[in-house]
Simulated scan of single mutants.
Amino acid sequence: MHEYERKQLLERIEREGATVGAEIPDAIEIDGESLDLRTIVFETRRRETVPAEERDRVESVKTKLRRERNRRVERLESASLSYDEGETLAESIVGIDRALHALETLEPADVGAERDAATAADRRRWMRFLRKALGQDGDAGDRRARGGP
């Protein structure tokens, strides 16, 4: 592969939107272990949230995918490859990126706790606003004591 072809492939994998239309590989081999990547991603995405008991497994898969992506990028950057081999490698990197994006955009399973925390924060802000508006805030009370509005 010529150096300019290598640079084109590297640019392609780093391009914003490179994963649009890309397919998640059915399976991927990482450190001698075969992962049914498409199944893992679709089963996890089907739930829309990551249950607590699955969170460690999903994080482990994401870590393995990031590590494998880095290995493949390094190989694309420096290994002696034919253009077809480089093209296949670049496509696999984009597929890994697609899978990572799908897994990283999942919400934690404890959405209820997050909603409750947001509601409590909203209530605190509302109460602060009301205290200020009614002059029960320290600054507003001082101004009235001095004859201010």
Rank of each mutant, 00 (worst) to 15 (best):
R12C: 02
R12H: 06
R12L: 12
R12G: 01
E14C: 04
E14T: 08
R15T: 10
A18K: 12
T19W: 03
G21F: 07
G21Y: 05
A22C: 10
A22W: 10
E23W: 00
I24L: 00
P25L: 03
P25C: 02
D26F: 08
A27Q: 15
E29M: 08
I30A: 02
G32V: 04
E33Q: 08
E33R: 05
S34Y: 08
L35C: 05
L35K: 05
D36T: 08
L37A: 04
R38M: 10
T39C: 01
T39P: 00
T39R: 12
I40C: 07
V41K: 00
V41H: 00
F42P: 01
F42G: 01
F42K: 09
E43I: 00
R45P: 00
R45F: 00
R46C: 01
R47F: 02
E48S: 11
V50M: 07
V50W: 02
P51K: 01
A52I: 06
A52G: 06
E53D: 10
E54F: 00
R55P: 01
R55D: 14
R55F: 04
D56A: 15
D56R: 09
D56W: 05
V58Y: 04
V58G: 03
E59Y: 03
V61L: 07
V61Y: 09
V61G: 05
K62C: 14
K62M: 15
K62T: 11
K62V: 13
T63F: 12
T63E: 14
K64G: 05
K64L: 15
K64W: 09
L65Y: 10
L65W: 08
L65C: 08
L65S: 09
R66Q: 08
R67G: 04
E68T: 06
E68W: 07
N70F: 12
R71E: 13
R71Y: 12
R71G: 12
R71T: 09
R72G: 08
R72M: 15
V73H: 05
E74L: 11
L76K: 02
E77W: 03
E77K: 15
A79L: 07
S80L: 13
S80I: 11
S80P: 08
L81C: 05
S82F: 04
S82T: 15
Y83S: 13
D84L: 14
D84G: 09
E85F: 06
G86R: 07
E87M: 10
T88N: 14
L89S: 07
A90C: 04
E91A: 11
E91V: 02
E91N: 11
E91G: 01
E91C: 02
S92F: 07
I93F: 03
G95L: 04
G95E: 03
I96Y: 09
D97R: 07
D97K: 10
R98S: 09
R98N: 11
R98F: 03
H101P: 02
H101V: 07
A102H: 04
A102L: 05
L103A: 09
E104K: 02
E104A: 06
L106V: 01
L106T: 02
E107R: 15
P108E: 11
P108G: 09
A109M: 04
A109F: 06
D110V: 04
V111G: 12
V111F: 13
V111H: 12
G112W: 12
G112Q: 14
G112K: 14
E114Q: 15
E114W: 12
R115T: 14
R115E: 14
D116G: 02
D116W: 07
A118Y: 00
A118C: 01
A120H: 11
A121D: 15
R123M: 10
R123T: 14
R124Y: 05
R124V: 12
